[in-house]
Amino acid sequence: MWEYTDKVREHFINPKNVGEIADASCVGEVGSLACGDALKLFLKVDENDRIVDAKFQTFGCASAIASSSALTEMIKGKTVDEAMDVSNQDIAEFLGGLPKEKMHCSVMGKEALEAAVANLRGLPMAPHEEGEVVCECFGVTDTTIRKAIAENNLKTVEEITDFTKAGGGCGKCLDKLADLLAESKGGLKPLQPVAPARPTGLTNLQRMKLISKIIDEEISPSLQKDGGNIELVDVDGKTVLVQLRGACSSCKSSQLTLKQFVEKRLRDAVDPDLVVEEVR
């Protein structure tokens, strides 16, 4: 059972502004039946660019319906520019919060608003058609994901799924999500070719020392920022055995971290044949 606030329940049981506006100034549509939620937003805008009426139709769970209701209540009476300042967090806050797995419902509200305003301004339907589709199951683009990461300060791949649904289906795009996340984090940037040239002709001892140094000085501090840590257990030939600590040890995406970040960094810096394995 989801823990919904009273405000969510109220806006679900008695949603405000349900329906269509026959002479709407613009319409914004996001989601689809296949995705499990969809929102169609109708706005009536007067000559002063003020939203005089807003109505919606939503297919989806209680939080999707409540988020739509909340959105229409929040933007009615605002100018279009003022309305565009309403963020998905504002929608969630208006409802007294949403379960984190349901944050994508508030994001859907914000996207519908953007789509409606784009329609009003005669622009192509933003933001869904911009960027490259990363999550094929739910049709989520890199633009949407980057935006959700930046606006909501997302820190993990699971959070990306909670906010955008990307990665919630087959899971094929989880690697790409980790890349997008890494790219957005200054700390993890060295993933990219910033890495110094790989030394050649290392002795076993030198290689072990280099691995240890990179883990201690680069990888470990970076994981510590997210409440985790890593410890080098042993180096057995080309296999680097590590133990994940703190938040990492219980984190579902720790295997991604291990392969996408730790192994990649060590391969770049030390030896392309290295394999990182977790010791439990």
């Binding site: 989801w2 329940r9 679900f12 049981i13 499990g36 939620d37 297919f59 989806g60 769970c61 209680a62 999707a64 319906i65 797995e101 349901k102 199951c137 739910f138 799924t161 649904k165 919630g168 289906g169």
Partner: peptide, 28 residues
Amino acid sequence: EGESILLMLDAFGVCASSGSACTSGSLE
């Protein structure tokens, strides 16, 4: 959508379950 149906049934004290994405905690 199933979760919405279940919550509205819940208001009548009716307990059932759903195969919808939203109720399972997954997205599919």
